[in-house]
Design a protein around this nucleic acid. Sequence first.
DNA 1: GCATGCATGTAAGAAGTTACATGATTGT
DNA 2: ACAATCATGTAACTTCTTACATGCATGC
Lengths: 193, 193
Amino acid sequence: MKKDTGKTKYILLGLMAKRPQTGYSIKKSIEYEFRHFWQESFGQIYPTLKILVDQGFAETSETETTQNGRRTITYTITERGQAELQRWLSEVPDVEKLRYEILLKVSFGTTTEPEIIDQHLDAFIARNEASLAEMEGFLTVFKDLEVHRTDILGSELTALCGKYLYTAMKDWAMEAKKRISDQKELQNETKNP
Amino acid sequence: MKKDTGKTKYILLGLMAKRPQTGYSIKKSIEYEFRHFWQESFGQIYPTLKILVDQGFAETSETETTQNGRRTITYTITERGQAELQRWLSEVPDVEKLRYEILLKVSFGTTTEPEIIDQHLDAFIARNEASLAEMEGFLTVFKDLEVHRTDILGSELTALCGKYLYTAMKDWAMEAKKRISDQKELQNETKNP
DNA sequence: GCATGCATGTAAGAAGTTACATGATTGT
DNA sequence: ACAATCATGTAACTTCTTACATGCATGC
């Protein structure tokens, strides 16, 4: 109904509020810090940055000449942008819409193809363990800084969320494997008395 | 690049494989069982069902006259559809793309607006507790059936995933609240020696 | 010489949501 | 009388991804 840029707008404003950035570096920031909980493509970022400028939420300080030959455009949040960010911050966040393809496969395939599902679960466990390790790496870095620096709390809480999430998913998958194999045994017992 | 229907196709096939259904009842099934991990709208379901028929993955057994005046169309999976479902089942599931808006807000707002973030976290905790209770309700029902019925294992594992997920999220939010208030205290100490 | 990283951008298309139209039945 | 549930469907729109084009600098 409303012509809007969805939520892309706000992650851009939020990152700009930390420091003025180029579209490219915003993409890198998202990949670095939010990859596990949010993603944006260039196809979203560049057009949205233009819209933000049009709406007076950001300003460009073009540096036509740069260290490397390419021109770069640095975007800075304006006061109006800051206010808009604040407005969004105070709104109740949307309920997240999850789509776990593995769950569909588990649900549709456990009884007919328990071996395949078991393999998927193994891969899922490995994937979640890898993410978990990444999160713990982040947390160690933050702990080593040891200071009560306010500017890292946000990043720390993001990593902590990942830690909780990936642990839960790993644990679930392990439990699921157990239940699937338990059931297979039960079925065998019924067959061979 | 490829003209496809995304993943919608497969949840429809998966549900049809359990029993022939109408588009409407498929929607209800998704809402009932997968709501927390998958969602589809009528705008996706009806056109996709037509495509499935075109591709020979489903058949219609139209019941022009029904108990209520409206005509209903029951979709049944074909052998080819069954094979297609099987093919998808054996493929490695995609990495899920999460988008947690609350995490952006926490990350961007903890230091500047700790009170607002605290409120968001309270609401988030309540929301996750409600979902958790729902999942535990499901699990109790399944345990009461008590049988080693294979056809409920899939549903049970779905509910179990929800239990793990929502517990993790609730716990994270509680920990986040604690860390935010800890930091506020630290800042106060620095101010008043 | 070639791949990669930095940097900006567009076009095409896929995927998904929302609103609406139709209409009967059942319950309040 | 009105709302809700059953039931099918479409149109308009938004949102998002993917592929591509350009081009310099640097490292292998």
